[in-house]
Design a binder for these strands. Structure first.
Lengths: 343, 343
DNA sequence: GCTCGGCATGGCAGCGCTGCCATGGCTGAT
DNA sequence: ATCAGCCATGGCAGCGCTGCCATGCCGAGC
């Protein structure tokens, strides 16, 4: 049952050490020898014993995914992507749910430190909002623990994957403007998330580009949750001059907006256009199907993990990779109501 | 940085071996010695090196979670529960996404076998629909690989966690009957899932108990997806005598039903009552909020993992644990429409 | 008193692999 | 011709633990 490196070595007619070199892509092996070894590995269907490798090699061949569950579907996508990358690089993934709070700073840092000491991952993948912790990055650099970030607020000197959320949000807002909307509201996300700022920024950019006045009454604070979307929408719809379109910083809040509109007997998009951000599975299961921005989360997970894994060998060659977003135009946005049209 | 068992031993004034015994809860250590060792462990904040343990102990201290993503939110819950149990037992969890298909039997079994050989998990946790594979259980027993199941179709001789879905479905149907509905439809789930059969069974039971005739036209096959819910609903609403309530075997399909109803200008629950099963996060984000059955998935994951971990030490003491469900009565079900009432 | 069995503890090899160093052959500069 | 320096490969200790066996002690039974 258990094939060992010794068996491969004797089949290939070389030493264990040479097999080890081939397996770890180390240099200084003749091409011909390399092939012989690879053939033997394939023939015996050999896979190195992870624990033995780890014990002798002083690393765990494990990377840890740190998260504070913002949304199960998003996380599942990221996780699948990371898993894909781990698979191809013969690494394992460990999952670390954390309670993120930039407030109880010391405690949070301590939790991460003990995770690093005891779980011994070779590197970390940080997901939002953990990416935006004020001091974690610095501390990890001090501890010499490599890490990659997904959608960090500030990506200078940081590897991983991100997406031009400012442009995406601005394009989404432009879509509403193109439909004739002039009173466009925005519900912001949780202030701890970098995404909240970018999406607001994109909204402002698009207004400015179209020559529309920014109206502070039309920007309401949410916190990414469904309930916060409902209450924000109620406030907006109660305005003397309510908006004709609401761009919500994520899908959950957009669902809240649609809910609040339905409560009042409004029909979306006839009476109100609504759009979100993230393209969660829920977004096309609600009625009407939600116009939103899709980010390729799985791909981002895979890219971040790949960058991290590469950084473990050669820290120089790594970078922050920008991935493209896609506008998903569905049924929740439409032309501005007739009676509301301004010349 | 790295505390080793040797350090603990010398601090406690005993041999490495004795420390090892204490750490692994082995018998034949004096209570006093045990305490001394535990104190030393605590003082040094010692955690054994997983790879070294694994290499010397001939086991991996890892359990594998096998799944074929039915729904990200369900899976995320299960996963969190398993992680909880692993945490308390000092085990690790590895994730194994699989492509389930009872058709390509040999290939599936082979995939699982190579996973067992190469990943070396000490045990497996099977989630639906993998739990219902016709031959996997037998094969695992032959290979002597312990496993626990979550909601298996057939739980004889199997450990893990499940829920009385037949009763839950019957109670849900009874709720509709109590609201005055007489023409109640059911959309079934994917035939590969045990859940589909149970939920249909519960539906039938409730009808019978209420003395209502079972009408085969009111049972339509779905496959748990949103789209299959839409098309099933369309077929039902096209009937000469359409149902006044639709019980869908899961939430995604129920969302499809609501969508199809909205398309036709129907108002839920005024014109049609709809209910689902699973209590996904989406279920209270759609309008109207969905009446559904909540299963404590996280708890089930935790219980299944705990049973498995216990089975690793003592296979005798383990069982299939039944967990309670809860009806979530929300806004999508209501009294039967007036003009439809039958005396 | 002596033996015997069981309990508490210790000693040590070795799990399967990699890091480090040694070795020997070959190339190219002198 | 000589030798420094590099490349391809091998040898072996040892990573941190646990399994197995040895040891010594104590109390019960004869």
């Amino acid at each position: 049952m258990a094939v060992r490196i010794e068996d491969v070595a004797s089949l290939a007619g070389v030493s264990m050490k040479t097999v080890s070199r081939v397996l770890n892509n180390e240099p200084n092996v003749r091409a011909q020898t390399r092939e012989k070894v690879q053939a033997a590995v394939a023939e015996l269907n050999y896979k190195p014993h992870p624990s033995a490798r780890s014990l002798a090699g002083h690393r765990s061949y494990l990377i840890a995914l740190l998260y504070d569950n913002p949304s199960p579907s998003y996380l599942m996508e990221i996780q699948s992507g990371v898993l894909d990358a781990c698979e191809t690089h013969h690494y394992g993934m460990m999952l670390r749910p954390l309670n993120y709070s930039p407030a109880s700073d010391a405690e949070f840092i301590h939790t991460v430190e003990s995770l690093v000491v005891h779980g011994r991952p070779d590197g970390l993948i940080l997901t939002p909002p953990i990416t935006d912790h004020p001091t974690l990055g610095k501390r990890l650099a001090e501890l010499n623990v490599p890490y990659a970030c997904i959608s960090p607020r500030d990506w200078s000197g940081c590897i991983g994957a991100n997406l031009d959320e400012v442009h995406a949000a601005s394009e989404m807002t432009a879509h509403l403007i193109a439909l004739g909307h002039r009173r466009i509201a925005h519900i912001t996300g949780h202030p701890d998330h970098g995404a909240s700022g970018w999406r607001l920024q994109g909204y402002c950019d698009a207004l400015q580009r179209a020559g529309l006045r920014f109206d502070p009454n039309l920007v309401v604070a949410g916190e990414f949750s469904f309930d916060s979307g409902i209450s924000a929408a109620r406030r907006l719809l109660d305005l003397k001059q309510p908006p004709t379109a609401i761009f919500s910083a994520n899908d959950d809040m957009a669902a809240g907006v649609i809910n609040a509109a339905c409560e009042r007997g409004m029909v979306v998009p006839r009476d109100l256009s609504v759009c979100g951000f993230d393209d969660t599975p829920m977004s096309h299961q609600i009625f009407p199907a939600l116009t939103t921005v899709r980010q390729p989360a799985r791909e981002m997970g895979c890219i971040a993990a790949t960058q991290l894994l590469r950084a473990l060998r050669n820290p120089e060659s790594c970078e922050m990779v920008h991935v493209p977003y896609t506008l998903q135009l569905r049924k929740s946005t439409g032309p501005v109501p007739n009676h509301q049209k301004t010349p």
